[in-house]
Amino acid sequence: MTLEKRKAAKWKVVINIILLFIVLIWTMPTVGLFISSLRPQDEVMNTGWWTTFTDGTRFNLDNYRQVLGGRDHTYVDAAGNTVRASGDNLSQAFVNSLTVTIPSVIIPLLIAAAAAFGFAWLEFPGRKIFFTIVVALLVVPLQIALIPILRDYQRIGLTGSYLAIWLAHTGFGLPLATYLLYNYISTIPRDIFESAFLDGAKQMTVFTLLVLPLSIPAIASLAIFQFLWVWNDLLVALVFLGGTADVAVLTQRLASMVGSRGQDWHLLTAGAFVTMIIPLAVFFGLQRFFVRGLMAGSVKG
């Protein structure tokens, strides 16, 4: 018995060492990025970030100042020359990303919650066919919509506007949101609705005062999911927001920095970290809801 126990304890240690090794591999790239973003340009370009641990370094926020700023920026390089560099204006892209993301999360969730309530609790002709279409659309690749919708937008002059991208994200996010909220709302006990209707409540009242508050857990999980999806999206922004700098979102700016400043590692690392700040905050703050949202299903077109 004691021998077996000792053997089991040994196994536990081995398992933990293997896991520690895997986790090290998994986090090293991100840690390297973060450390590099705080190092001065000449160090980032010439020595590996791991040398920080042995050689020491003078961490500063210069790289962040430069990628966030919109104006030109001067600094003194290692040889003592004053260098002018153009800013990447990520702070504006940051505001743009927020402007794109917040409505792109709230609008589809509002519309999907209403639709889910309709599908779950109201009788109307075509209910089953329409919902079958929603299920079928769950996995349709959004690439299918790019060309037709782009043509519509060009015709009504909507390309490059926020409305254009809000509607696009709404359309692409709706199938999953409707489907998952339907799953949730349809499990609300029937008695609750019946007593509300008997008391003479209108359907809109039932929806806003009963269904929406009861669905908060499901809506919260979905909101995190949709938030990360929209914030991290590149393709939809590229197609519908166009290339103009004043509306470009973070992912677009970062992608174009990779193209134009592929070797400026001090800027790329800082830029990448700027795009990750909000998702990481959401991730650490709301991990529980996030995991719950993932569990509910995540097949999305």
Partner: peptide, 8 residues
């Protein structure tokens, strides 16, 4: 990494 964009 789930929270990080493909571009990031």
């Amino acid at each position: 990494p789930m929270a990080i964009s493909f571009v990031g």
